[in-house]
C-alpha cells in the first residue's frame, strides 16, 4: 500500500510539473506571438495519458487494499487533482490555439493578460506546493486569490463589451485567454480544496 501511494505521489508530481510548464509556455508564447499549438497539444496528450495512469493506479489501490482515513482521502484527491492537471494542459492548448485562429496579435494590448497570468501562475505554483507539502494554510489562500482573478476577468471583459478601443480580433483573443486563465485558477482552487480535504477531512 505504501509503495503504491509513493508511486501515486510520483505520478502526480510528474503531472504537476508538466501541467505547470505547459501553462507557462502557452502564456509566454502568447505574449511573444509565438505559435506552439502542436507542442501544447503533445503536452495535453501526455497529461491525459498520465491522468489515465493515475486513475488505473488509484483504482488498483482501492480494489486491493480498501484504504481508509487519510489514505482513502489522499487517493480520492489524487483522482481529482490529476483531472485538474489534465485541464491545465487542455487550457494551455486552448491558449495556443487562440493565436493560431486569430493570426497576428502583436499589435494588441496584452497587459491585462500578463498581469493576470502572473497571478494565475503563482496560484498554480502554490496549489502544487500545498499538495506536495500538505500545507493546508497555503491551500486556504487560493480561494481568496481566485476572487481577485474573477474580479479582473469580469472587469476587463466588461470594458471590452463597453467598447474599449481595440480591434475585434484583439478583444476576442483577450476575452478567450482571460477566460482560460480564470478557469485554470478555478482548478488551482480545486487542488487546494483537495489538500484541505486530505489534511482535515473537511470538504470545501
Amino acid at each position: 500500500m505504501d509503495l503504491g501511494l509513493d508511486r501515486l505521489s510520483n505520478a502526480i508530481a510528474d503531472m504537476a510539473s508538466l501541467a505547470q510548464q505547459s501553462v507557462l509556455r502557452a502564456i509566454e508564447a502568447y505574449a511573444r506571438s509565438e505559435k506552439i499549438s502542436s507542442q501544447a497539444l503533445d503536452n495535453a496528450k501526455r497529461l491525459s495519458v498520465l491522468g489515465e495512469e493515475i486513475e488505473e493506479l488509484a483504482v488498483e489501490l482501492l480494489a486491493r487494499y480498501q484504504p481508509v482515513a487519510t489514505d482513502l482521502r489522499y487517493i480520492k484527491s489524487c483522482l481529482e487533482i490529476s483531472y485538474g492537471f489534465n485541464r491545465f494542459g487542455r487550457y494551455a492548448y486552448d491558449i495556443a490555439q487562440v493565436l493560431e485562429m486569430a493570426g497576428d496579435l502583436s499589435a494588441c494590448d496584452k497587459s491585462d493578460i500578463e498581469r493576470l497570468s502572473h497571478h494565475v501562475n503563482s496560484m498554480i505554483q502554490d496549489s502544487i506546493q500545498s499538495f506536495k507539502s500538505k500545507d493546508e494554510k497555503l491551500a486556504r489562500t487560493l480561494r481568496e486569490r481566485d476572487e481577485e482573478v474573477d474580479r479582473t476577468y469580469q472587469n476587463v471583459t466588461k470594458q471590452l463589451f463597453q467598447g474599449r478601443s481595440t480591434t475585434v480580433g484583439c478583444a476576442l483573443a483577450s476575452t478567450l485567454v482571460l477566460r482560460y486563465l480564470e478557469r485554470i485558477a478555478d482548478h488551482a482552487c480545486h487542488i487546494g480544496d483537495s489538500v484541505i480535504y486530505i489534511t482535515t477531512g473537511k470538504k470545501i
Partner: peptide, 16 residues
C-alpha cells in the same frame, strides 16, 4: 470513522 477519524490512534488502527 473510516473516512475521517478524529483520533490518531483510530486512524493508525484502521489503516493497518
Amino acid at each position: 470513522i473510516f473516512e475521517n477519524p478524529r483520533n490518531e490512534l483510530t486512524e493508525r488502527y484502521i489503516s493497518g
